Amino acid sequence: MNTPLQAVHHIAIICSDYEVSKRFYTGVLGLHIIREVYRERRQSYKLDLAIGDHYIIELFSFPYPPPRPSTPEACGLRHLAFAVNNLDAAIQHLHNNDVATEPVRVDEYTGKRFTFFKDPDGLPLELYEV
């Protein structure tokens, strides 16, 4: 079956505190800013972020966004996973930045190690060792 889909273009995240989330995604996770705009009409920032040359995340701020359940087992989008070459080093980097991680798990099908952590709004994020 042929599909017109080529790749994931981006993931949109709405945060509750724009400056805190901006520091987390750029300073802690190391994503690069492509562009940042303030949309006066919507009273909203839009921050386009990349990993290397790959555009990946749109970070939005909106006044008074409604809360959403945000555990890895909640209905809806489960989590966002980042590939890492060295899981132990990535976990240490997060811990050095006061980001807690869950115990390391092993994927029962691939044998690869992974862990979960949360962004400033509790969005579940994953590090997956490749």
Rank of each mutant, 00 (worst) to 15 (best):
I57N: 06
E108V: 12
E19G: 01
H54T: 13
G30F: 04
G76N: 04
L125N: 04
S44V: 03
Y25F: 02
S70D: 12
A81F: 09
L94N: 01
I56R: 15
Q6A: 12
L123N: 13
Q92W: 10
A74K: 08
S16K: 13
I34E: 06
V106G: 06
A83Q: 14
G27A: 10
P4Y: 08
Y25A: 06
M1I: 12
F117T: 00
A89F: 09
I11G: 05
A7L: 10
Q43K: 15
P103A: 07
K112Y: 08
F60W: 08
P66D: 11
P4C: 00
I34K: 08
R105W: 06
S44C: 10
T110I: 11
V84W: 08
G76F: 10
D98N: 15
A7P: 01
E40I: 15
L125V: 00
P120T: 00
R35A: 12
Y109I: 00
H79C: 03
D53K: 15
R39K: 12
R35S: 10
R113W: 02
S70P: 03
Y128P: 00
I51Q: 13
A74T: 09
N96Q: 13
I91C: 03
D17Q: 11
Y38D: 05
K112A: 11
R39Q: 14
S44F: 01
K112S: 09
E129H: 07
L123H: 11
L80R: 06
P66A: 14
L77W: 08
V8A: 10
Q43D: 13
A89S: 10
S21I: 02
Y55R: 11
Y18N: 05
G122Q: 00
S21M: 07
T115M: 06
R78C: 07
L29W: 03
L29V: 05
R23G: 06
G30W: 03
F116R: 04
E129G: 01
Y25N: 04
Y64F: 12
R39I: 15
I57R: 03
A100N: 12
T26E: 02
F62A: 02
I13M: 06
P120S: 06
A74P: 03
T26V: 05
A74Q: 04
D98Q: 14
R23N: 15
E40D: 14
